[in-house]
Design a protein around this nucleic acid. Structure first.
Lengths: 186, 186
DNA sequence: ACCTGAACACCGTTCAAGT
DNA sequence: ACCTGAACACCGTTCAAGT
C-alpha cells in the first residue's frame, strides 16, 4: 500500500538553498536537509542521487535566478550603460546571496559543475553588448574579459580579499569604466 | 625517555602539497598525509592544530612560491610589458599547479584564508606597475581591476568554464591588451 | 511507492597509555 | 617528547524491512 509523499524534490532543493545561505556549504548535510523537510536522511535518496547532485541542483536553480535578473535589464541605446548595468546586477546578486554566488562562480571543482548551457540566459545579453562595442570578431574575447573581471572581483570582495584599504565600491566602478573604455574602439 | 622525531612540519606540509595536486582537496585527509610521512594520523596533531590549519599552511607555502616567480620578473622600461609578463607568470603558475592555484585564489571561504600580508610580495610589483601607468591616485583601483580579471580568468579556465569555443589563449592575450590600453591614459 | 532503522565505511579529533 | 590504539561524534550512502 503506497504511502503519501511526505516531501518533494522542490521542497528538498528549497531547504538546501536556505541551509546553504545560513550555514554555508559545510553545513549543507543530508541530515540537515532531511530534518528541514521532515523526513530521515535515507529518504532523500529517493529523489536525489547524492549530496553532490543536490548541490548541482541548487547551483542550477541559483543560476536561473541570476539569469532572470539579467534578462530584466531593459537595454538602452548605449551599450556602455548596459555593460555597467550588467555588472551592477551581478554585484547586487553576489551581495544578496553570497554563498549561492560562490557556489556558482567559485569554480572550485570540488562541487559539481553546472550543466553546459545553464548560463545561456546570462551569456546572451552580454554577447549582444560586446558585439555592439567591439564587433563580432572580438565579441567573445571581450565577453570573457568582462566575465572574468566581474567574477574575479566579486569572488575577492565576498572573501574579503581587498585588504589594502581604499573604497571597494570605487574600484568596482573604476573597473566598469576602464573596461567600457577598453571596449570602445577609438 | 624521548623518542626521536619520526617526521617534521616541513615534511607534513610537503606531503600535503603532493596529495593536494594528485588527489585534490577532498583527497587531502589526515590519514593520507600521515601514511605518506610514515606516522599515524593522531601524531600529526603534535605539529598541526587541525586539518584546516594544515590547508592554510599549504596555501601560504604556495603563495610564497608564486611570489618568488613574480619577483623574478626583471622589470622593463615599458610598464605595459611588465603587466603582460605578470599576467603570464600567473597563468603559467595556474597551469602548473592547478589545485594549489585554486586553493589560493578560489576564495571559497570554506578553506582557511591566508594571512593578511602573504600576498605582499606579489602585490608590490603590481602596484609599482599600475602607479607608472595610471598615477598614484588610481593605482590601487587599477591593481584591483587587473587582479580581479587575471584571477577570474584563470579560475574559469581551470574549471573549464569557457565552453563557447574560440581560443582561450587569444582571449587571455586580448584581456592583457585591453587592460593595458585601458590603463594607458590618452 | 515511499519511508525508516540499522549498518557500513569513512572522516577529524581527543586522550590515556606506551616508549 | 613523541607516538599509538582506541574511542567519539559525525559524515554519506546502502539496504532489508516496514506501511
Amino acid at each position: 500500500m503506497p504511502t503519501p509523499d511526505r516531501t518533494s524534490l522542490e521542497q528538498i532543493i528549497g531547504a538546501a538553498r536556505e541551509i546553504l545561505e545560513s550555514d554555508g556549504l559545510a553545513g549543507l548535510t543530508m541530515q540537515a536537509v532531511a530534518e528541514r523537510v521532515g523526513v530521515r536522511a535515507p529518504s532523500l535518496y529517493k529523489r536525489v542521487r547524492s549530496r553532490d547532485a543536490l548541490i548541482g541542483l541548487v547551483a542550477e536553480a541559483t543560476i536561473l535566478d541570476l539569469g532572470e535578473r539579467v534578462n530584466a535589464i531593459n537595454s538602452s541605446p548605449d551599450p556602455r550603460k548596459d555593460l555597467a548595468a550588467l555588472a551592477r546586477v551581478f554585484r547586487a546578486f553576489a551581495h544578496e546571496r553570497p554563498t549561492g554566488y560562490r557556489l556558482i562562480f567559485g569554480w572550485s571543482a570540488e562541487t559539481a559543475r553546472p550543466e553546459r548551457g545553464s548560463f545561456a540566459s546570462s551569456v546572451g545579453p552580454l554577447l549582444r553588448i560586446t558585439t555592439e562595442l567591439v564587433g563580432p570578431d572580438d565579441a567573445l574575447s571581450a565577453a570573457r574579459t568582462f566575465t572574468a573581471w566581474a567574477n574575479g572581483f566579486l569572488s575577492m570582495e565576498l572573501a574579503g580579499a581587498f585588504q589594502l584599504g581604499g573604497s571597494v565600491e570605487d574600484a568596482f566602478e573604476y573597473g566598469i569604466a576602464r573596461l567600457a573604455d577598453a571596449f570602445t574602439r577609438p
